[in-house]
Design a protein around this nucleic acid. Structure first.
Length: 573
RNA sequence: GCCGAGGUAGCUCAGUCGGUGAGAGCGAUGGAUUCAUAACCCAUAGGUCGGCGGUUCAAGUCCGCCCCUCGGUACCA
């Protein structure tokens, strides 16, 4: 048996979604759903958990979207902040606080963070040459310049300022041939067009100074997912470099230095600080001004970050490096990182509009089937694939036919032949006793799986219990015993009811809506903190309510409708 | 190019420190049954474990080379 590693008090964060697009199933599977599941689990275990997140509203792409649409950056972030909040809410991703980084409080905390690093000498000034667009009147991120590859043996078009798409090699943005600004789509070099090279000044975080400490920190966490460790050690082995933490932009958090007029903090510098900001805002809203320190200063408590793999470098190396450099804060315990979710075999792409958007999903279906499916195919160890066919199969074959039907056949049987009263807990057969023991085995193993962030396995374990319930029910044949041996029949149904109550607890972190509905059908109280280990409240003689179908089947037409929404654009590429 | 991950039954994937006849779910086929959302239960299916070579008494499981897919490559977030 492994050791349970959760703490009595834990701060859980989910990667801040960038407020420049709607959330899709990939985002949900990557960070938000596992984080929400974990928080629900912690609370069932009677632990204190605070769950924060918020929209990431700074950065260059938001500015560019605003330019493209002819609106202000504020318009962009307002729009997406609203969609993001609603989507999370609709799926039952239940943050204690969902904030936004474009606010005074966050500016102040981020600037204080920067100032501390600057005063300690961990941030240094450097000058460099960057590409500037005179049409847009701004410096361009390397990614936003396209041209011909400067490598003599390649020369192919479509190379970006950071990397050539054709030969895959890194590119020096200032050396791209025939560069085009991807914001205004204009081109031409010095004098003859809008693209020119200008000198600029920026501030760099001396990550290299913390290389040894970061390695020691990683060494303390053998329990992290393999992919995160391999990636992080890989970076350390290459040697950490200074990392630029400011940008030439007018949208963002001003760099708190007189000589840094017109510069803002790099969005990835302030985004993780958002976790601190949101924790403070949440606890202040509860009138507990000082309590955030429990989570950010006290290493005895838990701090767990949930992210997608694209965020690994920031959460496993850069943010910990920032925390070390600052000095006041505790270090994160765990970074739970997921791989990517593909869609019908192809990459999900916001820019190509190739995705299953959460808000559109919710117009057609209830949240739990998606939570179920995304957990079942969670990209925990490697990329996985979302397919509508798979969604339908899992929903109909597993949720409805296995779990739903097990519940349904028992509640219906109980109503029909026992007047809705839980039968006496007598004459339990050996197989029945074995099944009751299986409940406890599941309880123990499941806690370890949730605690170890193995949600996919956890769900499988839950379904195994349901399957065993079905096997038991069929083997006992209560439809026969009800005619000549009501004692045996009652024992069968009683045993199954115990399984069902346990399932209502076990499934609740993943399927919160259905778990609540099930407990209503059972006519027992809603779950509350610490109920994971509470004794069964379902007793002999207790009257249940009329059952309702928990997991309706999804018919082909509904799936075809979704597939149709997807295909034209996917093929249009 | 460099670094990393992956290529296991029709499909989706498990396979811990190398060792009982290589597994699960779905699908397919046959059987049983009627409490239930035509659901459930039982049985069966023989896949050169990407290719070649090597180490070993023994290799999906270790080593080398090769092929294919996918990420990262630090100014997209």
């Amino acid at each position: 048996m492994r050791n349970i590693i959760m703490k009595d008090k834990t701060l859980v964060t989910a990667a801040l979604p960038y407020a420049n697009g709607k959330p899709h199933v990939g985002h949900i599977a990557g960070a938000y759903l596992p984080a929400d599941t974990y928080v629900r689990f912690l609370r069932l275990m009677g632990k204190d958990a605070v769950f924060v997140c918020g929209s990431d509203e700074n950065g260059a792409p938001i500015t560019f979207s605003a330019i493209k649409e002819g609106v202000t950056p504020q318009d962009i972030v307002d729009r997406y902040h609203a969609v993001l909040s609603e989507s999370f809410k609709g799926l039952g991703i239940d943050f204690d606080y969902y904030g936004r980084t474009h606010c005074e409080k966050h500016n102040g905390i981020s600037q204080e963070f920067f100032t501390t690093l600057h005063d300690k000498g961990h941030v240094v000034k450097r000058s460099s040459e960057q590409v500037y667009c005179t049409e847009c009147n701004m410096f361009l991120p390397d990614r936003y310049i396209e041209g011909n590859c400067p490598h003599p043996d390649c020369k192919k078009p479509g190379a970006r300022g950071d990397q050539c798409e054709s030969c895959g090699r890194p590119v020096d943005a200032t050396k791209l041939e025939d560069p085009v600004c991807m914001v205004c789509k204009q081109s031409g070099r010095e004098g003859k067009g809008c693209i020119e090279v200008r000198e600029t000044t920026h501030w760099y975080l001396r990550l290299d100074a913390f290389e040894k400490d970061l390695r020691a920190y990683l060494d303390l966490h053998p329990e992290w997912r393999e992919s995160v460790k391999r990636f992080s050690y890989g970076l350390l082995d290459q040697g950490l470099r200074e990392r630029c933490v400011t940008r030439d932009l007018d949208w963002g958090i001003p760099v708190p230095l007189e000589e840094a007029e017109g510069k803002v903090l790099y969005v990835w510098f302030d985004a993780p600080i958002g976790y601190i900001t949101f924790t403070r805002q949440y606890l202040e809203s509860l009138g507990k001004e000082e309590e955030w320190k429990d989570y950010w200063y006290n290493q005895d408590n838990g701090l767990v970050h949930f992210i997608g793999k694209d965020n690994t470098v920031f959460h496993a190396v850069m943010f910990p490096g920032m925390m070390m450099a600052h000095g006041d804060y505790r270090m994160p315990d765990t970074v739970v990182s997921n791989e990517f979710l593909n869609l019908e075999g192809d990459k999900i792409s916001t820019s190509r509009n190739y995705a299953v958007w959460v808000n559109e999903y919710l117009e057609a279906f209830s949240p739990d089937p998606l939570r179920y499916y995304l957990t079942a195919i969670a990209p925990e160890n490697s990329d996985s694939d979302f397919s509508w066919q798979g969604f339908q199969n899992r929903n109909n074959g597993e949720l409805a036919d296995n779990l739903g039907n097990f519940i349904q056949r028992n509640l219906a049987f109980c109503n029909k032949y026992f007047e809705g009263k839980v039968p006496p807990a007598e004459n339990i057969s050996d197989a029945g006793k074995e099944l009751l023991e299986e409940i406890e085995k599941t309880r123990t193993e499941l806690a370890e799986l949730f605690d170890g962030h193995r949600y996919r396995d956890a769900l499988e374990r839950i379904m195994l219990l349901s399957r065993k319930g079905n096997e038991f029910f069929s083997a006992e044949e209560p439809w026969k015993s009800r005619k000549d041996d009501m004692a045996k029949c009652g024992a069968t149904i009683y045993t199954c009811m115990m399984v069902i109550e346990a399932l209502s607890v076990f499934m609740s972190p993943i399927l919160p809506f259905s778990a609540a509905k099930l407990r209503e059908c059972l006519n027992i109280p809603a779950l509350s903190a610490g109920d994971w280990n509470t004794d069964a409240v379902l007793k002999s003689g207790h009257t249940i309510n009329t059952p309702e179908v928990l997991f309706p089947k999804i018919d082909d037409a509904m799936i075809e409708e979704q597939v149709a929404k997807l295909t034209p654009k996917a093929k249009a590429e």
